[in-house]
Simulated scan of single mutants.
Amino acid sequence: MFVSPAHRKVFEGVASRHEMYALFNRHSQAPFDEKRIAGTRYVGEWFEISEAGYDQMFEILPPLFYRGDMFAMREFLAASVTSVFFALTIDDRSRWFHGYCDLSDRQSPDTMRAEIIARECRPVRAMNAREKLDHIWSTTGPDFRGYADSRFPADLRNRQIVLVYPSAQGKIWKLLDDLTDEEIAAKLPVQFRLLPETIAA
């Protein structure tokens, strides 16, 4: 039976055209392992885009399917994983989103749609710890992020790493998941540093 990974917002705010394409490529440095080949590295990730970005993607190719407030790209990213775009009304406001769905699960687009609406209907703007790390990864340039290689113990390889600059050591590569609160704050944009933290669903 198919079990979908958790749905995750990987970028806070509305992605510009440039940011949207960078987010499409946020795993371009990932090793060609089973997770990438099968598409599970991508499934469940989503972010907000502009109406212009939504319209542009709709016009690239005839969609694989078009259903009211969503359409899927005809070209698959990996295995049965493809981009699904959503045009949603949330709190009486039109908004647009992109997410990666595994279409081997026929309910995947509807489940993601429900997850996006639930996440974006929160009465207070907030980010959980995972969202902060995903935002940092999404906005860090490829020269300053990567995947753990032979410099790391075997059990840590292929995990996400970023450059940090501790005052006493110059610069070092560190696992994304091991960033301290101070390092996270330093890497987040100023406007996100003081957002309240929520517990991931």
Results as ranks from 00 to 15, higher is better:
86 F>L: 06
166 P>F: 04
22 A>E: 06
37 I>K: 04
199 I>V: 08
70 M>T: 10
75 E>F: 00
201 A>I: 09
115 E>M: 06
24 F>K: 09
185 A>K: 13
39 G>D: 00
58 F>N: 00
71 F>G: 01
47 F>Y: 15
130 R>W: 04
9 K>A: 01
24 F>C: 08
23 L>R: 14
53 G>Q: 01
152 F>R: 03
2 F>Y: 14
33 D>Y: 06
41 R>K: 13
165 Y>M: 10
188 L>M: 09
132 K>Q: 05
28 S>L: 11
125 R>V: 14
94 S>W: 01
103 L>S: 07
186 A>S: 13
173 W>T: 00
178 D>H: 14
149 D>E: 10
140 T>G: 03
131 E>V: 09
82 T>L: 05
60 I>G: 00
175 L>T: 10
13 G>W: 04
55 D>H: 11
34 E>K: 08
76 F>C: 06
37 I>Y: 05
61 L>S: 05
119 R>I: 01
80 S>R: 14
33 D>C: 12
110 D>T: 11
89 T>S: 10
59 E>A: 12
58 F>Y: 12
163 L>D: 03
97 F>I: 01
16 S>T: 15
38 A>K: 10
22 A>N: 10
169 Q>D: 14
56 Q>Y: 12
114 A>W: 01
51 E>N: 02
66 Y>G: 05
178 D>R: 10
147 Y>K: 05
